[in-house]
Design a binder for these strands. Structure first.
Lengths: 141, 141
DNA sequence: GCACAATATTTGCTTGTGCAACTAAATTTA
DNA sequence: TAAATTTAGTTGCACAAGCAAATATTGTGC
């Protein structure tokens, strides 16, 4: 049966997992009014106020155009502001943005709790392993 | 630094890996003229001619509406045909679809070769592990 | 100091996938 | 057998992310 082969294929399984975990994360972050990626972007700005978009992109591993769009929508929500500094645009959290921080951490916590209950001990480091594999795949150009 | 926390987050790392491996797979399957998912759908139909859309969805772990759209586009390319059987629509490969089979397998092979060169021995079963984790996450509703 | 290259961001467009609501066919129930 | 429920697939819409080309600013070699 093909299923046997599909589940040995990293493209197949990584994408399947990504769909499942994305849905879980969207659920858990819903109370914050943000999608998970936007929530992570908020945390990134909260950690370093006045960060550049390039740095945000490096931190989130997302392309510049995606960052532009995400910031756009967070500005529209009144959670971020930006100041043009030469060719860079520096990103700041607004008061309302800062107010969201603890709620974001709560959502994140709940997400981790939720998936950790079904992960076995040998999956403990799964996330770190995926990160490692991604690093290697990226450097293999 | 936040990066430390991001890389411990399964949402974050699974999605990052998914983006990277999807790009690789799209590259490798390009010669077939199909995106990887459509290629897998073709293999699914080639394995069981006259399969229902529901079964295809179960095999690929994709939602019915996605299957509808994928089949639509493969029909437009003249690779699949369908026959209405009551409320089901049964999917068949055309001759042109069948002709593509070996090329799809070649692309798939190349993809595996490409990512296997950077995976260590401890990543050997990574794909199977991701599959397992997905199963568990799905059953934990 | 000027022309050209590099860098940072933006803009228009495409793609993959899902959701919710819908249609149509089949099955169950009364 | 008529009405209600379940099942299979479709349709309109939305969303996340990327690509390629454009714009704007900064840096470099001569």
């Amino acid at each position: 049966m093909l299923d046997t082969y599909f589940k040995e294929c990293l493209y197949f399984t990584a994408n399947r997992l990504s769909r499942i975990i994305t849905k879980m994360a969207e659920d858990e972050f819903a109370p914050s009014g943000l999608n998970p990626t936007s929530a992570f972007l908020m945390l990134t700005v909260l950690e370093k106020d006045g960060i550049s978009q390039k740095e945000i992109g490096q931190s989130l591993h997302l392309k510049p155009s995606t960052i532009t769009r995400l910031i756009e929508s967070l500005q529209a929500k009144g959670l971020l502001s930006s100041r043009q500094e030469g060719r860079m645009s520096l990103i700041y959290a607004t008061d309302r943005g800062r107010d969201l921080e603890s709620q974001i951490h709560e959502c994140w916590q709940k997400l981790r709790q939720r998936y950790n209950t079904v992960l076995n001990s040998q999956d403990d480091e799964l996330s770190l392993q995926l990160n490692e594999v991604s690093n290697r795949l990226e450097n293999a150009e």
